[in-house]
Amino acid sequence: MTVLGLHHVGHVVRDMSKAVERYGMLGFTLPPAAYPVLPPTPGAPAEPFGVANTHAYFPGNFIELVTLVGGEATGRMPVDARPIPLRVPDDRLPAIVAAIRDTTANMAACLNRFEGMHILMLDTDDVGSDAERLAAEGVGHGGVHAVQRPVETPQGTRMEPVRFLEIDGTAPGSVAEGRVGLAENAASEPGAHPNGAVGLVECVLCVDDAQMPETEARYSRYLGIAARSEGAARVFDLRDAAVTLVGASDLGSLLPGERAPALPGFVAYTVATRDADATERFLRDRGVALGRTAKGEIFVPADAALGVAIVFRG
């Protein structure tokens, strides 16, 4: 098995300033958001363009906050945002602009469904082998791509290579629930999070009850393993994390009070903490409304966390 755990989840938000403030209130440490800057045509002034992001880093994975930039954006740019100039030769600029517009359209479609979690990237140690395995299973994907991503270190930002693929379903690079794929190299400098969070360990996908068998079969092909039963849920156990599927009628038994904003949809993710009691005290001291899962773990409801429930596991 090459799928090891969760590389990252992506929380797509309308207003980056509001999202950074909310995550800070919940005790996550994030660097200033990176905003790409690019001339839309040769010789034109550079302007914010595409999508912007920031991350809550853990030792082996991260949470990504993503927002739209430019004409599709609805929120303001944070005052400490980092402009990231994209230097592209004039002859390649039209193709790059078109590719960025495709990505932006994908994220805009996600926001049109709901503000919340729309991205799941699975961690693998060999994305090339997984590409071959997926193709053999009849799973369409866009092939393996290599890019550079910024990683924050005490010495400043460095660019790290990452290889990834995106699974094709309802459209290139997307499936019904959003953007799902596999990626290598989630190495990063972990943040010191006041809430005690130390890693990303689970994501929860909610589907129409009638679609549970098809979705389970689909994720079994993505992950290369079978699921097990846990109450009403179906759980794929990876080495370092889990992907949990639950039918809409059973979501309340897993996360009391929660409802899926759209189906299928990612409704929650779980982070491990050093000390669950300390995390609960920290959040309650900040006046954060908390629920409790069927397992007894605390969680921040989706309506208090911009569309996705956040579970804290000790």
Rank of each mutant, 00 (worst) to 15 (best):
T273F: 09
H11T: 11
H55I: 05
A305M: 04
L200S: 03
A217V: 01
E258R: 10
A294I: 04
E177H: 07
N106Y: 09
P301F: 00
Y219K: 03
D275C: 04
N53A: 09
V144G: 02
E216P: 06
L238E: 05
A105C: 06
A81L: 12
R221E: 10
V180E: 04
E72I: 09
D277E: 14
Q211S: 14
Y219M: 05
D90Y: 12
D168V: 04
E21F: 01
D102Y: 06
R281N: 13
T170G: 06
V288N: 11
L65E: 02
D90K: 12
A183N: 10
P190E: 09
P36T: 12
P150G: 00
G199Q: 02
L223R: 08
R158L: 11
L65S: 05
V235M: 01
A44Y: 07
I96G: 09
V66M: 05
A289R: 14
K18H: 11
D275W: 04
E137H: 11
P161I: 00
E189K: 09
T103Y: 10
P154V: 09
A210Y: 08
G247R: 01
E166H: 06
T157D: 05
H11E: 11
D250W: 00
R292D: 03
G70A: 10
V3M: 14
V37P: 13
L122I: 09
E72S: 14
P59V: 08
A136W: 00
D125V: 11
A210K: 11
A171S: 09
A146N: 02
